[in-house]
Design a protein around this nucleic acid. Structure first.
Length: 251
DNA sequence: AACCGTATCAACCGCTTCGCA
DNA sequence: GTGCGAAGCGGTTGATACGGT
């Protein structure tokens, strides 16, 4: 009885990915398409389940991944979107190019939640917390409507602020740019429905990439070959900075 | 220097949704 | 309409890094 596992787990490797595994997966995804995730590890010579491959690709190996902390603007956008969408991390991530749902989820749980709490805002409801600890009582009240973006940003940035007036009101409108129509991804701000293929390799349309080459892959206009910026354990460095730890060579 | 508590984030697990026969 | 398989999603865990004592 019970649910069948997503894949045959006998003999499959778990845990952190090695640079070699990353290389195998990227090499395979670069040169093949139209496969389902379940068969990719076998064909790519990986002792991983398809789910694991998919996750690794989406979260770290995708060439358009942005690394590093979220900017102030991104953070505010996440808060705004969370206010409207709740814990729909993939939907939120769709509005932040280069950011993954996992990354946003982690950032929310480790950074934003605390900041909001310090501000006296319930991170779940985005409303002022009813019971504020005496030490965290605001020194003065200020209607949220008087809080502009600059003020909110300032407060979000102030890690040591202990007595901040709670309040954010739902924004008048979402400032996020709607995803462009075109290829196939929700994660990349593209439209899944437009994807003509049975599998879109996590939704970025590998067809387009392999046919047109990585140079033409939408990459925020950086004009960087992402595979020159590959670094183990972290995918690609979009900045092409000295932080690159290694280079992946694709034959 | 060693220990301990906390923070961070990559990865896994299991449920839900979707597409197809 | 139903059942099944695959993909997607969100919650949770665990390893590691970091900071304080």
């Amino acid at each position: 009885m019970g649910r069948q596992p997503c894949c045959d787990k006998v003999g499959l490797k778990k845990g952190p990915w090695t640079a070699e595994e990353d290389q195998k997966l990227v090499r395979f995804l670069l040169t093949h398409d139209h496969y389902c995730w379940r068969v990719i590890p076998k064909l790519a010579g990986l002792l991983r389940c398809g789910k694991s491959c998919r996750l690794r690709w989406i979260n770290y190996l995708r060439p358009d991944i942005k690394r590093g902390l979220l900017s102030d603007e991104e953070e505010k956008l996440v808060i705004d979107l969370h206010m409207q969408l709740g814990n729909r991390w993939s939907k939120i991530a769709a509005q932040l190019p280069g950011r993954t749902d996992n990354e946003i989820k982690n950032h929310w749980n480790t950074h934003i939640k605390k900041k909001l709490r310090r501000m006296g805002i319930d991170p779940v409801t985005h409303l002022p917390m009813q019971e504020i600890h005496p030490l965290e009582q605001p020194r003065q009240q200020q209607p949220s409507s008087q809080l502009d973006d600059a003020e909110l940003s300032l407060r979000l940035d102030n890690e040591d602020e202990k007595a901040i007036v709670p309040m954010i009101q739902p924004p008048q409108e979402i400032t996020a740019v709607p995803p462009p129509k075109g290829n196939c991804s929700t994660t990349f701000g593209m439209d899944v429905a437009d994807c003509p293929e049975p599998m879109c390799l996590s939704g970025i349309g590998m067809d387009g990439i392999t046919e047109a080459g990585w140079d033409s892959f939408a990459y925020g206009g950086l004009g960087v070959d992402p595979f020159d910026q590959y670094y183990p354990g972290g995918g690609f460095d979009p900045t092409g900075s000295d932080a690159i730890l290694g280079t992946l060579h694709i034959d």
